[in-house]
Structure formats: C-alpha cells, structure tokens
Design a protein around this nucleic acid. Structure first.
Lengths: 260, 260
DNA sequence: GTTGCGCTTGACGCTGCGTCAACTTCTACG
DNA sequence: CGTAGAAGTTGACGCAGCGTCAAGCGCAAC
C-alpha cells in the first residue's frame, strides 16, 4: 500500500514525539502513562525508545476521551482495562457527583470573589458624590476610637483611604447586599439562629473582615451599636424594621459559634 | 485593663486544640500554617507547645475568610502580610479568572458526563418500542462487517447488548443532541472547519468512542457512510438538509487534526 | 570531530494538608 | 508513687498529575 514490507513494523508504529503531536499531550505525560502502567508502548527499540502501535493509539484516544471528562487516571485504568460498559457507567456515575459538587463550589466561590472585588475595585471610575449616604465612615470616628482603641481605628482608616473615594462607595454597595438579604429574611420571618440568617451573618462578617477583623467582643459591640445608634440603625431598618436588631441577635449567636 | 498582669499572658492565649475547635480547622492545619510561616504562634511554652494570642486568632480569621474564597495559601500570605487593600484587590482579581475558568470547566464536564450517563444508564426503565427509530444498530451489521472487520463489530455488539434495550434507546437520544447541533450549525451557516462545527465533531467522536474507538480511517469511513447510505443519512438530514455532508466534511478535517 | 536534536532514566517540585510513627509531658487514678 | 491515657511535639511519607531540570546516549548533518 503505502509502506513497503521491509519497513512495515517501523511504519506502523510511531515514536513518542509523533504520538505526542497527534494527541496533543506532552511526551512527559506519555512516559508518565507508561510508568503507571496506563499506556505501555507496544515495543521499544534496541536503544530503549518507545514505539506505539495502532492499538496504543486507540487506547490513548479512549483514555483522553475519559480524561476530558475529568475522570481520575485510576478510574480510567479501570474502565479501559475492563472494556465493559457496565463498569464505565458505574465509574462515571461515581464521578458525576464529584463533578457537580466541584462545579457548584467554584460557582459560589467565583460569585463571592466577584462581588468582593466589585465592591473593592470597580469604584475607581465613580464620583464621590454619595459618600455621605449609606454606611458612612469618618463620621463616627470619635465614638469608634473610644470603643475600640486608636490602633484599630487607625489601621481601618488607612485601609479605607487606600480604597479611594470611589472604591469606598463600592464597599458600601457590597454592604447593601447584606442589608437587602436581612430585609428579605425579616419579611419571610426567619429566626436569628436559622441557617439562612446565620449565612447572612457569615457574609456580613466576611465583608467586615476584609478591612477590619472583629473579635467576638467587638463584633457583638458593633452590631449592638447598629441598634443603639440612630445613624447606623437607619441604614438597616430602612430596608425592613427590625433588621438591625435581627443582625445583632444573629451576630451574637454567630459570634458564640465562630469567634469564642 | 480587663486582665490582671499575673495571668495575662496565659489567660490571653489558647492552645492548639482550643484554637482548632474555635476555628474549625484541624490542629494539623495549624501546625502546617506554622511550618510555612503563615501563622506562627505568638509564643511557645517551655516544653514546646504552641500558644496563640489574640492577634493570631484575628489573623487566622482573616486567613480563613480568604481561604473560603479559594485563595491559595501563598496569595493569602501576601495579603495578610501586606495588610493593604490594593494588594488584596490585585490578588483577588488574579484569582477570579482562575475561579471562573474552573467553574466553567466543571460545568461543561458535569453536563457532558451527565449526558453520557443518561444515555447509558437511564434507559433501564424504558420500552424498546422505538428501537427501530434513529440510529439503529444491528440493521447495518453486514455492511459494517465488510467495512471494518468482524472483530470490531463483535466487540461493538457486545457492548451494545450489555446496554439493554432501553439503554440503547438512551444512547440514541444522546446522539440526537449532536444531530440537533449540526442542524443549528447549518441554519447559521457555519463552515466545516469552524470552531463551532469542529466542536460538534469532537462531541460526536467522544460519543462514538465510548463504545467503539474509531481510527482516522474508519472515522472518515463511517461519516462518509452517513452521506452515502440513505438509511443513515435520513437521521441527519431530517434535521437540516446537508447535515450528514457537513458532518463528513468536518470529520475529515477533524480526523486530520486529531487522529493522524 | 563536533555540534545539536531527540530520546532515555531518575528525581525533585508543587498544593494542602492526612496519616502514621516515635517520643515527651501533663493529668488523673488507684 | 507508679502508671496509664490524653494531648502535645517533630519528622517523614503519601496523594494527583504531571512540569521541570539534570545527566547521558544515539544518530545525523556539517
């Protein structure tokens, strides 16, 4: 046909770099697959070079299809060894749960990180007009210094300034998400110790933690202040009456569980 | 202030198991964080036991918030060392790209695996009424034997039988997805070598590979047959005229790129 | 002869800890 | 007061899937 008999065996096999180029995997990967017994070469030349025949190419195709699905190499070995659809099915089913869990996990992480970044970074193109709205900062500095000491206030201030005026605005927006969630929780009637509300507190604490890490004591203190201080309370209760109190109660429980 | 001088250092510090319980991470993890310099204890007792003070608890809170976001420990170290919002933002931005990519990857994998499993496994509750529709199998066995040899046909048959009649039906359904995608590609006017169509071929090949691994030669052969043989062609062209030809042309290109 | 490409076999690195193993120290109990 | 048990300590290996040197060999072109 296209190969003469004398060179047939050579023509029918490919070397590692050819197979690498054909398949798109590195030669290192092919050696690895040899090392773990997943894909031994069909033959080796006298000087030790790997030669892969047609069967090996097919086997590699099969391996790569499964690898594309995220199947661990050990499972792939099971499947291609067994060469049995029932085994394939069972193995894939096991694997699907892990895949969807990972997908959901990364989706949540990406959403959270995006929100966080957004609140920190997007603001650099905005005006500082509305800095007086929402969760203002410098306004309450004197009280804060009394409550939590100069050190904490100074560090918090430094971070705050580093944000730029617009970044600060975005930070306020992120906070608003928490407030909205609190309002929704009130309307639905969730209790402070419900999973839903505790989840909101987790977000509130995480949000706060990116700039200033509260202790159990100071976290309880600041949420209590949200209730006591009219200027803060408005920011919460304007969404739903009792939001500040709900946050305080929930934060108290949350702090016991996570900060003490 | 609130602690007497004599017991201040002891009262203000916690041991590793206490911190472990407080934070929810294992003591091994805390030792690891010490080992890599991420969270050294504030002090060690004369007999070498780790003691963590208030600052370390706060630092751990910060670390865990970031770890929840999936941030690598190295990046976390950068952030908590710098203690600078600008660094936090830049690091998180870098990380977001990786997170969304991972999310998308797992989403695609999960969808593909789900479809695959579905086509293989869900069918065990169905009738075999419609076995004559779609992509039938045994019907073309004589030709297949001629074209690709008895071995391949026997192995393929074995796998096919192992599916059960209903599993077979589901396999046909999975194939229909490919056909629909081909029809859509035709209506939009994609070329055989376009990324979109090549992607469809990738799926078609993967679908085929789970039961029978084609070579470049046989893959070209079978897609050519989809065009030549009226009984096969109908399955493709009923969705959109020219679908079988498009698949053949695209598969030819695909085979050159991936199978030769 | 020598240069250089492409192959070979080790062997370590990476991520984030889990999991022994061997040992010390503190506390409780009889 | 001796001893067992709980809890701490420091190594050190294991894991998944290769990437990445490092050192060396064979073969072909100049």
């Amino acid at each position: 046909m296209r190969t003469n008999p004398a060179t047939a065996s050579a023509a029918e096999t490919v070397d590692i770099s050819k197979l690498s180029r054909m398949s798109g995997v590195t030669s290192r990967t092919l050696r690895h697959y040899d090392a773990i017994g997943l894909l031994p070469p069909s033959d080796t030349t006298p000087d030790g070079r790997r030669r892969y025949g047609r069967d090996e190419v097919l086997r590699l195709q099969h391996i790569l299809v499964l690898r594309e699905l995220g199947t661990p190499l050990g499972d792939i070995a099971t499947i291609v060894e067994a060469d049995d659809p029932a085994v394939t099915i069972a193995t894939l089913r096991d694997h699907l749960g892990a895949l969807t869990a990972e997908r959901d996990r990364f989706a949540r992480l990406a959403a959270t990180v995006a929100t966080t970044i957004d609140s920190l970074e997007r603001g650099t193109t905005m005006t500082n007009e509305q800095l007086l709205d929402g969760f203002e900062h410098r306004k309450y500095e004197p009280e804060a210094r009394e409550r939590w000491g100069d050190d904490a206030v100074d560090r918090s201030n430094a971070r705050w300034k580093a944000l730029g005026t617009e970044g600060q605005q975005r930070h306020l927006d992120a906070h608003r998400e928490v407030v909205e969630a609190l309002g929704a929780a009130i309307r639905v009637g969730f209790a402070p110790d419900s999973d839903e509300v505790q989840e909101i507190v987790t977000k509130h604490h995480a949000w706060l933690s990116l700039f200033w890490t509260p202790t159990a004591e100071t976290y309880r203190g600041i949420t209590q202040m949200y209730v006591d201080d009219e200027r803060f309370r408005r920011n919460y209760d304007e969404v739903a009456p009792g939001a500040a109190a709900l946050l305080r109660d929930a934060a108290d429980i949350w702090a016991s569980r996570h900060l003490s």
